[in-house]
Write a protein that binds this DNA or RNA. Structure first.
Lengths: 344, 344
DNA sequence: CTGAAAGCGCTTACAG
DNA sequence: CTGAAAGCGCTTACAG
């Protein structure tokens, strides 16, 4: 092992002698003794060790493993979208709790494989991938094992051998609709995500399950599948509200879509919640500051980030997880966008 | 300089001989020749150099400076708030464009001074501080110069000797109000930030300047100073709208406050923009997905992050900036929350 | 351009 | 617990 000097030159004391040579002379000991202290080897008296350590730090010498804190990498598809920040907060929080720093990157800066290479050669603790698609070759690269990897809420089903963390989409969606049913709604529309994404499909099935358990018909005209975004939400909700017999409540598969539903209601002249109840899925910061504040199914994004980090640390410590897929529970937050249907 | 092996042991070929010794033997050259190649010194024929380089990388030997990409640190007060993500995106974007990675942290994990120490001893390129307060001792620590620092949009006036990047708050606010004046509004309220923050004060003065240039009176009852957040925005706007003669337009000093104004309008039964126009300041992602979408003064957060990063890189490269304070221009985005006042 | 020789800084094995 | 001695891997200075 090799001693490093501080990088910025400030403490670059005379290089005419070796760093240990200098300290050895000042401490009045031999170079081998200093060497043992630097490398934390036994065979040095506690007083001598103490004296040498003081001198070492006074000279700005650092043991390599102390020089840089350990790092985890969190890689997002891009730094956008309503929940990215909350996930990042969870990761940074859990990592910093154990003194680990967090490198944030995107797959637009480097492809997944290059991030894994970079993390590995930098000696990172591991990599958390918050991306919806993992190619075949990325999956192989991940499993080749150079560096520990955890997948966070991937929208496509990941390989079972890669640890991944997600959310109980089906149960969350069912709970949202059960809330509307309990309020007395019987004509409930859904602005759904694309059924090609497992998360979107799970939420749609949760919606259907709740209706079916309540003995309500499965009315395809009340379901609009769109992208998880605002403008698609506006368009889909406008269509639903223009129906001859519009729904009295709409369940949106994401906060962005739900904000679109609110905007559609405004345009079509539906008061929320007086004439239309709205339930959202995600419950990111925007849900609470919408007008009216949205009743929403909370995805525990921050907790997701924390759990992913702790799982990663666990794998990095050599504990192969016995369960590789974990889903955290959602919870319904009731705010002001839902109410019983108007008496008809 | 010392050669490093790949960290994860995969390429840890026999340690019975030195790394250079092995490569030297395989390349059929002497150890000194390999040493010159590793350290990029002259005095080696191009063919020999090439052959040795191939062998070096085949063995997974890396020059220390190639092993870890350079890093910048971006430190936020916390990972929350509407513009944090956009700033982070700008930093990551500008850094990754030149192959530099980005370590993200918060001052709750470590105080500012500890971050500077960590960045310095890790050999980071520099630190971008996105925090509103810098204590006296932090300022001294920053100026002691161990590692380059750039301040991003600090709400209190930073020391002139520390480079800082902000936004033209006064001009932006004035432009927002001029937009309302041009629509014909003459009774304009403001949900302002605390005047104790320079950004809040500048926006308030911009508001006043526009009114005064239009020859309108300075009516203190139309100005409510609050925190830059949603619930304060709701409360302040409710007060304004309950006035005997309520304003026909409100300028909010932040997106969060503006969302609160929309909610207050809903509660008090004011249609936006029919009976009340609303202009916001920030124009983060939430402004475009509000209902109705908000007319807003855009702070170029992502660009702020990019400029801060480039400034930092510049300082790190040894160019002392001649100008240490830079303010980026805002721009008004007109959406659907503003319209001429209802004919009275 | 190349390498034998000398040297340097650190580590290891061992004697006291 | 401590250090003299031997050794190792890399670098430097220089001869060819």
């Amino acid at each position: 092992m090799v001693v490093q000097e501080r990088v910025n030159g400030r403490a670059a004391s005379s290089r005419r002698h070796g760093l240990m040579t200098v300290v050895a002379r000042e401490a009045g000991v031999s170079v081998p003794t200093v060497s043992k202290v630097v490398n934390k080897k036994p065979g040095v008296g506690p007083d001598t060790r103490e004296r040498i350590e003081v001198l070492l730090s006074a000279h700005g010498f650092l043991r390599p493993e102390d020089a840089r804190p350990q790092q985890v990498y969190v890689i997002f598809r891009d730094l956008a979208g309503p929940y990215t920040l909350e996930v990042a907060r969870g990761v940074v929080d859990a990592a910093s709790a154990v003194g680990i720093d967090c490198v944030t990157g995107t797959t637009s800066a480097r492809p997944v494989g290059a991030w894994l290479d970079a993390a590995e050669s930098a000696g990172a603790v591991g990599v958390i991938l918050v991306i919806s698609m993992l190619t075949e070759s990325d999956q192989r690269r991940v499993m080749s094992g150079g560096v520990p990897v955890v997948l966070l809420d991937p929208l496509n089903e990941p390989d079972h051998r890669i640890p991944s963390i997600g959310v109980t989409n089906w149960r969350g969606a069912r709970a949202a609709v059960e809330h509307l049913l309990a309020l007395g709604h019987t004509r409930i529309g859904m602005v759904a995500g694309r059924p090609s994404s497992p998360a979107g499909a799970a939420r749609l099935h949760g919606f259907r399950a709740a209706l079916s358990e309540a003995g309500l018909p499965d009315d395809a005209s009340l379901i609009k599948a769109t992208d998880f975004d605002y403008s698609e939400g506006v368009r889909a909700a406008c269509t639903l509200l223009s129906l001859p017999e519009p729904p009295t409540a709409i369940f949106a598969a994401s906060d962005s879509q739900a904000l679109g539903v609110l905007e559609a209601a405004r345009r079509e002249g539906f008061a929320v919640p007086g004439q239309l109840s709205v339930v959202s899925f995600d419950d990111t910061a925007v849900a609470a500051t919408a007008s009216p504040p949205l009743t929403a199914v909370r995805q525990p994004f921050e907790e997701l980030g924390r759990v992913a980090t702790r799982t990663l640390l666990d794998v990095a410590a050599g504990h192969q997880p016995t369960v590789t897929r974990m889903e955290l529970a959602t919870a319904l937050t009731v705010r002001e966008s839902t109410a019983p249907p108007a008496a008809s």
